Amino acid sequence: MVFPTIGHLRQAIQEYIIHNKVPIKYAKNDKQRIRAHCDEDCSWFLFAALDSRTQSWVVKNFIGQHTCSREWELKQFTAKYLAARYIESFRANDKMSLKNFARIVRLDFNMTPFRSKLQRARRLAMKKIHGDELKQYNMLWDYSAENFAKKWKGDVFKNKLWAIARSYTHADWMRNMEEMKLHMPIWRYILDARELPILSMLEKIKNKLMTRFYSKNKECEEWAGNICPKIRKKLDK
Results as ranks from 00 to 15, higher is better:
residue 81 Y to A: 00
residue 113 P to I: 00
residue 71 E to D: 06
residue 59 V to W: 02
residue 228 C to V: 04
residue 133 E to S: 13
residue 133 E to R: 09
residue 194 R to P: 01
residue 82 L to V: 02
residue 163 A to Y: 01
residue 130 H to E: 09
residue 99 K to E: 07
residue 18 I to R: 03
residue 11 Q to S: 14
residue 73 E to A: 04
residue 76 Q to D: 13
residue 9 L to F: 07
residue 55 Q to I: 04
residue 154 G to P: 05
residue 10 R to S: 05
residue 193 A to W: 03
residue 105 V to T: 01
residue 228 C to I: 06
residue 104 I to W: 06
residue 108 D to E: 10
residue 124 L to S: 00
residue 93 N to T: 06
residue 70 R to V: 12
residue 210 M to I: 14
residue 106 R to S: 08
residue 127 K to R: 15
residue 92 A to L: 12
residue 173 W to R: 15
residue 179 E to H: 10
residue 108 D to N: 13
residue 137 Y to I: 08
residue 141 W to G: 10
residue 23 P to K: 11
residue 143 Y to K: 10
residue 92 A to T: 02
residue 75 K to V: 05
residue 72 W to H: 15
residue 76 Q to R: 08
residue 37 H to T: 15
residue 89 S to W: 09
residue 51 D to M: 06
residue 119 Q to R: 06
residue 9 L to S: 02
residue 98 L to V: 07
residue 225 G to S: 04
residue 166 R to S: 15
residue 181 K to Y: 14
residue 84 A to L: 10
residue 62 F to I: 03
residue 14 Q to T: 15
residue 182 L to H: 13
residue 84 A to T: 08
residue 217 N to W: 07
residue 177 M to P: 00
residue 222 E to S: 14
residue 59 V to L: 03
residue 202 L to F: 12
residue 191 L to K: 04
residue 120 R to P: 01
residue 13 I to L: 15
residue 38 C to N: 03
residue 36 A to D: 01
residue 228 C to E: 15
residue 91 R to I: 04
residue 221 E to V: 09
residue 231 I to V: 15
residue 208 K to T: 06
residue 132 D to S: 07
residue 74 L to G: 05
residue 209 L to I: 11
residue 56 S to Q: 15
residue 108 D to V: 00
residue 112 T to M: 08
residue 47 F to T: 03
residue 207 N to F: 04
residue 136 Q to M: 06
residue 146 E to I: 03
residue 42 C to G: 01
residue 117 K to H: 04
residue 157 F to T: 01
residue 95 K to V: 09
residue 46 L to D: 01
residue 224 A to R: 15
residue 106 R to K: 13
residue 18 I to G: 03
residue 88 E to K: 07
residue 41 D to I: 01
residue 119 Q to M: 04
residue 156 V to R: 14
residue 236 D to V: 05
residue 56 S to C: 14
residue 1 M to A: 14
residue 152 W to R: 01
residue 237 K to A: 11
residue 23 P to E: 08
residue 3 F to G: 04
residue 62 F to L: 12
residue 69 S to E: 12
residue 115 R to N: 06
residue 205 I to Q: 08
